[in-house]
Design a protein around this nucleic acid. Structure first.
Length: 803
DNA sequence: AGCACGCCGACT
DNA sequence: GTCGGCGTGCTC
């Protein structure tokens, strides 16, 4: 007897354990851990993952596996272990962990249907027969909310109708039809001679296949022989050819060629940095390297040469880059160096395209993956290096279950494969830099820029001064002068507007009323293109108002500075300037991002105006001026990392100027010019920033001095939310050591979302061996209320979003 | 998650 | 006396 332990596709506490199934004899040699199967569960069918096989079980009423979804495991031993580890470190369900490691296309889609039973059709109620018409199957969804439901249920009970559960995959493999000769050349020729004289096309097709076959893609065959499908059909009927479905990959880069590049000679700095990594690769040793290198110091070239060494060993490599900088420029660099050995995974790809890239990895058709966060789960079996570029980026932390950080996963995998993990950044996260200083990570430093160009001088403009001087525009006099100057010289400028925490809201000028979402405690954002007000948290939207709902005044207007508004003002101030605007609105269409950047690169515009997305990776020789319109917009968000984020962003943006022959300049506009994060960013002084910020973190008990966990409780009733949070706080105080600092309950920064009140509790701690079991007990205790859907408790170990 | 099972009130 | 409402607990 062979038994399979299966994790079923229901993410709840009660089903978060393996269920045993009998493996039918015919699959005894096939079923292995890591495969997906379909199993009966209660009355339905579900997708599940085999995590173990064994020869006996305590379970008495074993059901057999219904069917297999894979012929080979989709998760290997390492990834199964990694899944287990994810459940422990992020407190998620096993099924969520397993699904997170696979492309979304492999998730199941469930269909419930009512089938007609042919033999019982005479017994069937008149109305039901009428409803079915000439159909034999009706989807459950169609009748679920109709008056027909009770009648149908009776008929089902009587056995006149049958309920069928179907499980399907979300994404499909893409196939193409091919045509193939069924017999040998001689037999085919002989058959040709027996064809009727009228069958000109059929003979032509056979002849073509004899010369170019024996198999050929159907579509091209029709084109080449200029014939129609009917000719093929006749040949199929005569059994002279067969049609075959052959799997093809969707290729997101099909119509692109990438110029081949070769390794560049390394600078002294680079050589010093690469040596320990190469030694690690050579010896098969796991180490975490923090590569701290100023912008333009050539980190990417170092990455590529280490990858080269890994591939030469016959091993594989993963490169993570932040979603936002996974630009065509970036892809081009890797594709140019490593050609067809590269798979690219990012959110711009369709479900099916991601699935195809994943299968290329699984089939070992590629050796290198460049991708965003989830690419860390690439199913390589012989990893030689993992590189995380811009390691400080918060997008490496997933903000939904499983709430993992790609850096932690990388280190897990690096340890498993005994290979180096390289974290690269010009502005490392405090956590990583502190670990490097302690010697936990090995620090590698790239001090000099490759072309020996000095970092650009930065001017800080105090916008309060501007206001006092009577300048009410969003451009300071200095920035305006410099923009005009570049325009005259024919050089380019980049204007950066950080909109986060500063979106355009609608306010009444008479009574100060701000239009808010009726379901969330957050102001609605004005979307100019569609002339609508939208809630960014629950999706609520409404038409723009022309009269204040509170005081009936007509003096209601839009506040906040959006990119569109900057564009408008630029048009007034510098009408001759050609401006390209890049934000969510202008880049949402596929390929728009790349097109706009290309236009700018070709000099078709003087000014590139944009949000976050232009902060990274752009490298245009003619850019000599970078302007930051409002540096402090995110400085006062309720987030202990806001100073760090501001520093990183300003440093990042400044790095866009003067990367080549022409010297660059940076202008930072701010209302808080003496804030250390702005001052030190202007001086390009990371290390001083690090020291200052560390003092603050230490004083207030934040990472990297303390670990942090955020518990968010949400409930439709505010009093309940407070009471439960309060109980949790008290319980934690009893269970945790006296060193742990437990804060709360306090209302979340967004106190109501989707008509649910949100309260939170923050725990700062150094060492709590029982922490996760304490947290588990809390969730278990409220299980009923959670199941009823009234209550949710979200636990984020190591949060990056405090909202 | 979804479904069966079981316990209460409103009706033929 | 039964039909159907929802609350409770189980699914290998």
């Amino acid at each position: 007897m062979k038994v399979a332990s299966v994790i079923v596709d229901i993410p709840t506490r009660q089903t978060d354990r393996p269920f045993d199934y009998l493996v039918p004899d015919e699959w005894e040699d096939v079923v292995q851990a890591g495969m997906r199967v379909i199993v009966p569960f209660g009355t339905r069918l579900l997708q599940g993952f085999v995590i173990d096989t064994k020869s006996d079980t305590e379970v008495e009423k074993l059901k057999p596996i219904h069917s297999l979804l894979d012929v080979a495991p989709v998760l290997n031993e390492e990834l199964l272990q990694l899944g287990k580890w994810l459940t422990e470190t992020t407190l998620c369900f096993m099924i969520s962990a397993l699904q997170a490691m696979l492309p979304a296309a492999m998730k199941a889609k469930y269909e419930k249907e009512i089938h007609l039973i042919q033999e019982r059709i005479d017994h069937l109620h008149e109305d039901v027969r009428l409803f079915f018409g000439d159909r034999t199957v009706v989807s459950w969804r169609e009748i679920e909310h109709t008056s027909l439901l009770p009648l149908l249920q009776k008929e089902i009970a009587k056995g006149h109708l049958e309920v069928v559960y179907r499980v399907e995959e979300k994404g499909k493999k893409k196939t193409a039809k091919w045509v193939e000769l069924t017999s040998t050349a001689e037999q085919t020729m002989e058959a040709m001679s027996r064809l009727s004289a009228q069958a000109v096309k059929q003979k032509e097709i056979l002849q073509f296949l004899l010369e170019n076959g024996p198999s050929f893609p159907l579509k091209q065959l029709l084109e080449e022989t200029n014939s129609s499908l009917s000719a093929i059909k006749s040949l199929v009927q005569k059994k002279l050819v067969v049609e075959k479905e052959i799997e093809v990959y969707r290729d997101p880069f099909a119509d692109r060629t990438f110029a081949k590049t070769s390794p560049l000679p390394l600078t002294e700095d680079q050589q010093r940095a690469i040596a320990p990594i190469l030694a690690g690769i050579e010896k098969g040793e796991h180490d975490v390297f923090l590569m701290y290198g100023v912008t333009g110091s050539g980190k990417t070239e170092v990455y590529m040469q280490t990858i080269d060494a890994v591939l030469k060993q016959g091993k594989e490599a993963i490169v993570l880059v932040p979603e936002i900088s996974l630009t065509p420029q970036m892809v081009k660099r890797f594709k140019g160096r490593f050609g067809s050995k590269v798979a690219v995974l990012h959110s711009g790809l369709s479900l099916g395209e991601k699935y195809d890239e994943w299968r290329k990895i699984q089939r070992k058709e590629v050796q290198l993956v460049v991708g965003a966060r989830s690419a860390i789960f690439a199913p390589f079996e012989n990893l030689g290096i993992i590189i995380i570029d811009e390691e400080h980026e918060t997008s490496y932390k997933q903000e939904e279950n499983p709430r993992y950080h790609a850096r932690d996963v990388a280190i897990f995998r690096g340890r498993y494969h005994r290979c180096p993990v390289v974290l690269g950044s010009a502005t490392p996260s405090l956590e990583s830099f502190a670990r490097a200083k302690k010697g936990v990570y090995k620090q590698l430093t790239l001090k000099k820029r490759m072309n020996d160009k000095a970092l650009p001088p930065v001017d800080i403009v105090d916008m309060r001064e501007e206001l006092r001087a009577g300048n009410r525009s969003m451009f300071s006099r200095l920035l305006f002068e410099k923009l005009k100057d570049r325009l005259e010289k024919g050089e380019q400028s980049v204007l950066f507007l950080n909109r986060r925490g500063y979106s355009s809201f609608v306010m009444c000028r008479d009574c100060g009323h701000v239009i808010q979402c009726p379901h969330c405690d957050i102001s609605l954002t004005y979307h100019r293109v569609q002339q609508r007000l939208k809630c960014h948290y629950c999706g609520y939207e409404q038409a723009v108002l022309h009269r204040c709902p509170s005081c009936e005044s007509e003096h209601i207007r839009f506040f906040g500075t959006g990119t569109q508004k900057v564009e408008e003002e630029l048009g007034k101030l510098l009408p001759e300037a050609r401006v390209i605007r890049m934000d969510v609105d202008t880049t949402s269409r596929k390929g728009a991002h790349e097109r706009l950047l290309n236009e700018f690169g070709e000099g078709k515009a003087d000014i590139l105006l944009g949000t976050q997305m232009i902060a990274k990776g752009l490298d245009f020789p003619k850019v000599t001026l970078v302007g930051v319109l409002a540096a402090d917009t995110m400085l006062y968000l309720p987030d202990f990392r806001s100073a760090e984020k501001t520093f990183q962003l300003l440093t990042q943006v400044s790095g866009r100027a003067g990367r080549h022959q022409l010297p660059g300049e940076v202008v930072i506009q701010t209302y808080t010019p003496d804030h250390y994060s702005i001052e030190l960013a202007a001086k390009h002084d990371y290390e001083t920033f690090y020291e200052r910020e560390m003092l603050i973190r230490k004083k207030h008990g934040y990472p990297p001095f303390y670990y942090l966990t955020l518990i968010t409780v949400s409930h439709p009733e505010a009093t309940k939310a407070v009471a439960i949070t309060d109980k949790i706080v008290h319980y934690l105080q009893k269970q945790l050591s006296s060193q742990a600092i437990i804060l709360g309950p306090v209302a979340s920064p967004i106190a109501r979302m989707n008509d649910r009140y949100r309260y939170q509790c923050m725990i700062k701690y150094k060492r709590e061996p029982n922490f996760s079991s304490v947290l588990r007990k809390i969730v278990d205790h409220y299980q009923q209320e959670i199941n009823r859907g009234e209550l949710t408790i979200t636990i984020d170990l190591n949060p990056y979003m405090m909202m």
